[in-house]
Amino acid sequence: MKRKLALYIMFTMAVWGGISVFIGKQTVHNFDNLLRNKLLLIVGAFAIILGLGSLIFHHTQKIKRNARYWQYSYITLGALIITSFIGLFGGVRGEGGLPTFFGGTVLGTYQGNIYTFQDKNELKLFKADPSRYAREDIALMPLPQGVSEDLSRYEKSVLLREIQLRNTSLQLQNLEIPLMISPVSGEVVPFEDDFGVSIQNIYEGILVPCGSTMFAMLAFYMCSAAYRAFRMRNLHAGVLLVSAFIVMLGQIPLITAFIPGLHDFRQWILDVPNLASKRGIMIGVGLGMAATSFKIIFGIERAWLGGGEE
């Protein structure tokens, strides 16, 4: 009965999801989003509890069994407890009850019209007086008057280039920005929690660099994989070697300057045989996805339920 119920729920949700693709009404989409995103979030929250239980169980078992490198399990469990404590009681950015912020003095908030501008994933803020110019003229004016006095020469050039060449524009927003006295420079700056132990800082200061380190190792793995791939063991490996060699050489301007047609040949390899095989795989993948979905929707494939009959 448990499995039958799961099958019925899955079938209803799948048919609903399929139908909603062909319906344009926003109310239908909103309901679909509610089912997909909000319900999945709730299910995900419960699953995280199960996941945490598994993590704790796995590492306590390792410690109990004195498995190889069991000492690292203490670090994992310790990190789990500390970060959970800071996250639960200190807030994501140190705004919780736990006194995790030990930076400068918080002054209050600045409220006013601010121009925000996205540059290299950084949101820049500029004070501005919107009454001095109309927004429609930004595209063709050398530089908005109200902004210029707050910008450095470099920022002006960046701003102009972005406005004119790329499809971006300044956003005028009425913002409230918390201010603080920086413990480093002593100036009044927008509030930053760089000086506290918040979950965000732990993430940015520990997890992101560790992830970057792993990612950087990819370069070395690529070298060893390339060595393995380029050993001419058979005809296929030979074709791979020659085509890869041409593609790599075709990327180097100094080489293409001396060998006419190399750049075009490289592009042909990428655009014709490479793209054709990629598209062939992708068509197969699309049909495979459809077949797998139908297998599950019609209850033919039940491995996800643990297999077997209901």
Binding site: V43, A47, L50, S54, W304, L305, G308
Partner: peptide
């Protein structure tokens, strides 16, 4: 975590079956 829950159930049920 959701994949973990399903994977665990699959392996457990397979052993049982």
């Amino acid at each position: 975590p959701i994949v973990y829950t399903i994977a665990r159930e699959i392996v457990k049920e397979t052993y049982a079956s």
